[in-house]
Design a protein around this nucleic acid. Structure first.
Length: 807
RNA sequence: GCCGAAGUGGUGAAACUGGUAUACACGAAGGACUUAAAAUCCUUUGGAGUUAAUCCUCCGUGCGGGUUCGAGUCCCGCCUUCGGCACCA
């Protein structure tokens, strides 16, 4: 018998499948629809990563099973092709990103096709195709129209040496990744999307979807809704006296009950109050110096709880505590962020650990207002009774919170409010390789949207891909593209030169798959009604916060304007773990631990590669690659091949046992594909095949086995199916059903414990009574020996499971 | 730092709602076949002790406690590793 020739057989079937309509999704078919989707890849220059097929194969298995179960399946593929690497490659080599992207897509396509994935290639999409990004731009215009897009000043990373804006990833240890130059934060006008307007719905609607619990938690933590109050503190200086109207500094606090314990205030170094009172701050030079230092720090460094807090007092300014009317100092400190809350806090050192650390360092008053701890030593954040708080004394935290809010509202010094950790989405990039933002800036009319009929705003050809010296995107230098007539007044105007972030194209791509060639709408509503929502979406754990949130936001917006029929895009979401290098580290060129999928497919075949990736470990967990492990799976495939050539129609005495095992295996594989416990599916099939090898197998049993193996190893199963005399594809077969009567064992092995220790085993039948069993147990030699002379205190029998005798 | 996940043999891992810990696979050791090797097949494989015996005993799921007839699984407190942290995608 010859070895399984994977090269020949896999190429043969890939060709046949490519020409067939086996994997085509049919719009409006009468069969029930099933839409399953993987995150479309970024076609990087390094080619397919072995991590991609982990997710792709798992959902390919699901898609193939669903087709065999009678569904009309949509399992599409596309390219998330805008992005930084192609642009950086262009800067280095002068190659236009269009050229390198096309080349990379060709490589990815060849690689994916070599894996026998059942994508419907006729619906392939590419986010960098003007026919696609026309609609990305269209969505932006709709957001702009509904006032959900606005421009504001934001910090960006700026390399002082190469004079370019940097992505966070390009900043390493506060230095520029390219040149090692110093990086500091510089303000720039940026387009923002008002995702915070959807914060509540993004949170509440998590109840409507079937995501893994941990994914829901990630989403809700990211949104970070909290309840509290906004309170205003009056700012005073030499010229502003208590009786004057003056300037009020709002703060957000989750603990208004502790207001009597507020002994100072802290504002973010970027806070407007500093500029407002420049003349009144006696130590402005010192403050300015501190602001400059802050610009070099990352947010993580600023908010690190372990690090000693730094800050500088604003001499000459005081704030008035609205309840005590006491004058308290104001500090600027970098641990307060301008982007969270109001950018200013009331500090209660007795009951907040960060404030406590800060107060110790600057020798500020620590005033206890809730009893229960030792506030001299550390902040008390637990429950307790209010003290030192005039009208709140004696109340508990909840009562005091309510009463304080009533008091603030009555005096018009504050109000109850909610706050979100979620911030608006910075939507501008000063880069070339992204969708141009379709806005025209007119000195007379302001921001004017490009007319819908003029979409897409196509990226012009350029020679130099570097950001300009003042931080504009390289598009700013393309004069005949930038200079346009204002669509409103006809005067001289300029195009917006910012482009969109990579997230844009991936925030709605799943809609385009339902109608990829439509040039009248992003997708036909009838088709959307047929196909959406996505029944199952799988992707990387690392995408479960941002991409998921952004795309849910866009989807909700499109729902509100009547473009899509559902308020949530994904009915179900799962995430897979990363595949690590053989050394257990993340795969990377620099570590030299990258596994090339082509080499594995070439040596062992696609079926082996697929089955190995499913077998290597739990789907949602990070797992290291093992070249040896691949060999084991190849042996399994080889065994299947050998057995498939030695079948007969004989009846055997042990056929009942074999049929029982087959039914158990069908049950396990059927159920565990649904939970993505694919590693145990494979091991169950290995056990069955080992049995075939020991005892032989007839054609009838083997055919059912082939059907359940076929989603995992499609090529070999299709070939064996044909060898067994079938003209049509195995993927047109019905998914086998197991017989529940056939999976029950006749005899059950029952373990016996004495005082929780395993001592013996007996065999019982399904319907034996406890009395009968007890008799057998007590007659057991080993049990007798262990019970010698001891009295039985308890006899515990858990039906068909275990016996425990307590003595 | 904050948030999330995970720690079980030499290795990847399995164990359903608390009920026989280590399935399946890799590696290793021994054997068969072979002039030899590869491939393949068979046997053994958590640790320690003990026996004429493949009989039996004890220990064992990161560490320390707890709940329970019974804990890898539940609770409390630690330690370690990995992922995300808003301009990588």
């Amino acid at each position: 018998m010859e070895q399984y020739n994977h090269k020949e057989i896999e190429a043969k079937w890939q060709k046949v499948w490519d020409k067939s309509d086996l994997y085509k999704a049919i719009d409006f078919s009468k069969k029930p629809k099933y839409y399953c989707m993987i995150e479309f890849p970024y076609p990087s220059g390094e080619g397919l990563h072995v991590g991609h097929p982990r997710s792709f194969t798992a959902l390919d298995i699901l898609a193939r099973k669903r087709r065999m179960e009678g569904y009309n399946v949509l399992f599409p593929i596309g390219w998330d092709a805008f992005g930084l690497p192609a642009e950086n490659y262009a800067i280095k080599t002068g190659t236009h990103p269009r050229i390198s992207t096309e080349k990379n897509i060709a490589t990815f396509t060849r690689q994916l096709k070599s894996l026998g994935l059942s994508f419907d290639w006729s619906r392939e999409i590419d986010t960098t195709d003007p026919n696609y990004y026309k609609w990305t731009q269209w969505i932006f215009l709709k957001l702009f129209e509904k006032n959900l897009a606005y421009k504001t000043k934001m910090d960006i990373n700026w390399c002082t040496k190469c004079n370019v804006g940097l992505a966070n990833e390009e900043v390493v240890n506060n230095l520029c990744e390219r040149c090692g130059g110093e990086v500091y934060h510089r303000e720039r006008e940026q387009w923002m999307l008002k995702i915070t307007a959807y914060a509540d719905r993004l949170l509440e609607d998590l109840d409507k979807v079937n995501y893994l619990e941990k994914i829901k938690k990630l989403q809700s933590d990211w949104i970070g809704k909290s309840h509290g109050a906004q309170v205003v503190f009056k700012v005073m200086s030499k010229t502003v006296l208590p009786k004057d109207k003056g300037y009020y500094l709002p703060v957000y606090t989750t603990r208004p009950d502790t207001l009597f314990g507020c002994t100072y205030m802290v504002v973010a170094p970027e806070h407007e109050v500093i500029q407002k009172f420049v003349d009144q701050i006696d130590n402005y030079d010192e403050v300015l110096d501190y602001i400059e230092q802050t610009k070099k720090k990352t947010e993580m460094e600023r908010t690190n709880l372990e690090k000693t807090k730094s800050g500088v007092e604003l001499h000459g300014l005081k704030a008035s505590n609205p309840v005590t009317k006491e004058e308290i100092p104001i500090f600027a400190a970098d641990y307060v962020l301008a982007t969270y809350g109001t950018g200013a806090i009331m500090a209660v050192p007795a009951h907040d650990q960060r404030d406590h650390d800060f107060a110790k360092k600057y020798d500020l008053e620590i005033k206890e207002v809730i009893s229960g701890g030792n506030v001299k030593e550390e902040a008390w954040t637990g429950e307790g009774t209010l003290v030192n708080s005039v009208f709140l004394n004696g109340l508990n935290v909840q009562q005091a919170t309510d009463k304080m809010i009533d008091w603030l509202e009555e005096k018009e010094l504050g109000f109850e409010t909610t706050n979100y950790h979620l911030r608006d989405w910075v939507f501008s990039r000063q880069r070339y390789w992204g969708e141009p933002i379709p806005i025209i800036i007119c000195p007379e009319c302001g921001y004017v949207p490009v007319a819908e009929k003029d979409l897409p705003v196509v990226l012009p050809e350029i020679k130099n891909y570097l950001t300009t010296e003042n931080g504009d995107s390289p598009l700013a230098l393309v004069e005949d593209w930038v200079n346009v007539e204002c669509p409103k007044c006809g005067g001289d105007a300029k195009r917006e030169t910012d482009t969109m972030p990579n997230w844009a194209g991936s925030s709605w791509y799943f809609l385009r798959y339902t109608d990829p060639h439509n040039n009248k709408a992003l997708a036909d509503l009838k088709k959307l009604k047929y196909w959406t929502p996505i029944d199952w979406y799988n992707g990387g754990m690392e995408h479960t916060t941002l991409h998921l949130l952004y795309s849910r936001f866009w989807h909700k917006f499109l729902f509100d304007i009547g473009v899509v029929p559902t308020s949530e895009p994904y009915a179900k979401r799962t995430s897979h773990g990363m595949i690590l290098g053989e050394d257990g580290e993340k795969m990377s060129k620099s570590r030299g631990n990258v596994i090339n999928p082509d080499a594995v497919v070439n040596e062992h075949g696609a079926d082996t590669f697929r089955a190995y990736e499913m077998f290597m470990g739990p789907f949602d967990q990070a797992t290291p690659w093992s070249t040896q492990g691949v060999v084991g799976v190849r042996r399994f495939i080889e065994k299947v091949w050998q057995i498939g050539h030695k079948l007969d129609d004989k009846k055997r005495t042990n056929d009942d046992d074999l049929i029982r095992l087959l039914n158990k295996t069908i049950k396990q594989v059927t159920e565990q594909i649904e939970t993505l416990d694919l590693n145990t599916c494979i091991s169950a099939m290995m056990i069955l095949v080992n049995k075939f090898q020991e005892e032989g197998c007839n054609k009838k049993i083997f055919k059912d086995f082939l059907k359940i193996l076929s989603p995992f190893a499609p090529h070999i199963c299709e070939e064996l199916w044909q060898i067994l005399g079938h003209k049509k594809s195995i993927f047109l077969e019905k998914w086998p059903k197991f017989n529940p009567e056939l999976i029950k064992d006749e005899a059950i092995e029952l373990p016996i414990q004495i005082n929780g220790k395993m001592r013996s085993k007996i065999f019982i039948t399904q319907d034996m009574s406890e009395e009968e069993i007890k008799k057998i147990v007590l007659a057991d030699e080993k049990v007798k020996k262990n019970l010698e002379g001891d009295e039985i205190k308890k006899f515990i029998y858990i039906k068909n499971k275990i016996i425990n005798i307590v003595i």
